[in-house]
Design a protein around this nucleic acid. Structure first.
Length: 640
DNA sequence: TTAGGGTTAG
């Protein structure tokens, strides 16, 4: 695969260049290993270090260990750098093997290094022993011990050591601040912060992040404002990611704009948080702009940034772009594989998700619980019942991953949607964990699809018992009665909602146009162009009628005349957004809409016709999956 | 030795 240059010197250089950039499969690493041996390059410590770091980057840490064990010569610096690599990459179990190997070769790691290691792996007993054995302790050793103690929750002991330190640098103060933050004692963290005489930008950033993690966004904002020009890029990144964590995606984007105005250079980390905001909002235009910015500024696309791009593209319905990023990614970790598998699944490509699942293992990566959630839900969305069943049984027996509630949820969904209601119910009854609202919810959805009203009632009752405050459950129940024309019960249900103060989450759809996100709620008249939109909606309704669309009026809550019901349905938020998109964009442009709830079956069949009549591709992301409407068909093949 | 990052079922 890699051609061999003529002389040894250039072979070493050549290997170093190839190894530096990429990540490899186990097989490829074996080939490089063979080339190093055949080329007699074992004396080149720098090449060997590069090779080892490649192993860690490729998550083949055992291979690195094996390589060191079989090395015929002892290079002390190589042992030390391997230890460093294994610490940095979190491959701590390997460390014990490395440590024994070092001792066999009479190489002794530094005591501070060992203390640091024991602290990181949480072996407090050994850390204490090491610390006690050190005759001369400097501030570095003290700080390492403080972090070891605080990691183990021995906060008082850490504080005691800190109070008695002869010398404290800013790292000592900052460790204590982060430690209190991590343990949730934000008040003490703040008093440490206030007492710190050598406050630096790290102290401020640690405190801001502490407030964010404690869900005190206002306090974080206050410090952020007070910092003024002392803010660095980490400060901005902390605030942007904080907004994303608190689901304030719009604010995250606004903060990024401010950051640019203030001329602070965005980093890879900035882009990762922003892409996550785009993924949640379904803001493809901004996401594409960020991808372009990354390319223009030559930011490094590592596994984390790559994953953020993959996730953004698949959550915005551009699965092809997601695959493109995935294929070009030199370094892929389990997150990247999980994202692309889940992305293919929600976009309706269950078969491809299965292919990638196989490929992932060929490349030596072990699937985890998240992988199986994506895989099973992919099988479910594509109706691949037998494959789903097989993976569900194999996940424990072959892959050693114990199924948790999410996996059972996928299976209930898979069986229920496929019409195997009895089996789905059996699974709910026998599963070793208590079924939650989501599990009952997918069973209910299956009842609706397959019109099993008897089972529905039972399921709804379970849902209401479990979560009497979730408005969605009452809507399910109400819709169920409405579909049976039992309007007295519908009204009773509405009354219970009012009495208990339960509200239904309003359906809301958004569409991005020229960098602006337009939001629509059913029956909403706030939009500036609402008059034109309504006229256009009437025009669409006419077209729909001409093309034989009959409104499915079963899903409307109120007991009203049929004609009126039809109007209520034709103005569901996704339709308003699509109408607005159609009238505001040039012919042929793809329309992308994001909806917070599931799209109803009536809108679904209407959108199929609209895509054909107006010759537009329409992509709707609803609460759980994508619908790509094109030429009168949907990618879900009406199975959702 | 101290601060900021990504994937999870209806």
């Amino acid at each position: 695969m890699y051609s061999t240059p003529k002389n040894l010197r250039s072979l070493a250089d050549h290997l170093a260049v190839v190894l530096q950039k990429n990540s490899f499969t186990r097989k490829q690493l074996e080939q490089f290993h063979a080339q190093i041996l055949a080329g007699g390059l074992l004396h080149s410590a720098s090449l060997l270090t590069t090779f080892l770091s490649s192993c860690y980057r490729s998550q083949q840490t055992h291979y690195a260990l094996l390589f060191m064990r079989n090395l015929p010569i002892c290079i002390p610096s190589l042992w030390n750098s391997t230890v460093r690599l294994s610490l940095d990459s979190g491959a701590w179990p390997d460390f014990v093997g490395l440590y024994n190997g070092m001792l066999r070769n009479s190489v002794f790691p530094s005591k501070t290094g060992l203390l640091d290691f024991y602290g990181k792996v949480g072996n407090l007993r050994c850390a204490r022993k090491m610390f006690a054995e050190m005759l001369q302790r400097d501030v570095v050793a003290d700080n390492a011990m403080v972090s070891a103690l605080s990691k183990h929750g021995c906060l008082e002991e850490a504080r005691d050591l800190f109070d008695n330190m002869l010398q404290r640098n800013s790292a000592s103060w900052n460790s204590m601040i982060t430690c209190y933050c991590k343990l949730g004692d934000i008040g003490t963290a703040r008093s440490m912060f206030d007492a710190n005489p050598i406050k630096d930008v790290v102290s401020w950033n640690a405190m801001i992040d502490g407030y964010i993690k404690a869900n005190q966004l206002l306090a974080a904002q206050e410090l952020f404002v007070r910092m003024g020009t002392a803010r660095n890029s980490v400060t901005w990144n902390t605030m942007i990611s904080g907004y994303v964590q608190c689901k304030e995606f719009g604010k995250a984007i606004a903060t990024f704009q401010e950051m640019r105005v203030e001329n602070v250079k965005p980093t890879e980390v900035t882009m990762i948080s922003l892409l996550s905001a785009c993924a949640h909002l379904g803001a493809l235009d901004l996401g594409e702009w960020i991808h372009d910015y990354i390319r223009r500024k030559r930011l490094k696309i590592d596994a984390v940034l790559g994953n953020a791009l993959i996730d953004m593209y698949s959550k915005c319905g551009s699965i092809k772009a997601a695959c493109d990023v995935f294929d070009r990614l030199p370094v892929k970790n389990i997150f990247c594989w999980n994202s692309i598998i889940a992305g293919l699944g929600t976009n309706g490509y269950g078969g491809k998700a299965i292919d990638l699942f196989a490929q992932m293992q060929e490349e030596g990566l072990k699937p985890d619980g998240v992988t199986f959630v994506g895989l099973l839900s992919g099988c479910s969305h594509s109706g691949l019942v037998s494959a789903g069943r097989r993976y569900f049984s194999e996940m424990h027996d072959i892959y050693g991953v114990t199924p948790v509630i999410e996996h059972y949820g996928c299976m209930v969904d898979l069986l229920g949607r496929a019409g195997l209601l009895k089996e789905a119910v059996e699974l709910v009854k026998t599963m070793p964990v208590k079924p939650n609202a989501q599990v009952w919810g997918s069973l209910l959805r299956a009842c609706q699809i397959h019109k099993d009203t008897e089972l529905s009632k039972d399921v709804v009752q379970n849902l209401l018992d479990l979560d009497p405050c979730d408005g969605g459950n009452y809507v399910y129940l109400s819709n169920l009665y409405a579909s049976l024309n039992r309007w007295d019960e519908v009204n009773a249900c509405r009354k219970i909602m009012i009495d208990r103060g339960v509200h239904k989450v309003p359906g809301c759809s958004s569409i991005e146009l020229d960098g602006l996100v337009h939001e629509f709620v059913a029956g909403d008249s706030r939009h500036l162009q609402i008059m034109q939109i309504n006229l256009f909606l009437d025009e669409i309704a006419k077209q729909l009628k001409e093309h034989g669309h009959e409104s499915d009026t079963a899903l409307v809550l109120h007991d009203i005349e049929d004609e009126e019901k039809e109007t209520a349905v034709s103005y569901h938020s996704e339709r308003i957004a699509v109408a607005f998109g159609l009238m505001s964009t040039p012919p042929g442009k793809t329309i992308r809409v994001v909806k917070n709830l599931r799209t109803c079956s009536d809108c679904h069949s209407a959108l199929k016709i609209i895509s054909n009549v107006y010759k537009r591709e329409i992509i709707v992301r609803d609460r759980k999956r994508f619908h790509h409407f094109k030429d009168g068909c949907c990618s879900c093949r009406d199975y959702w």
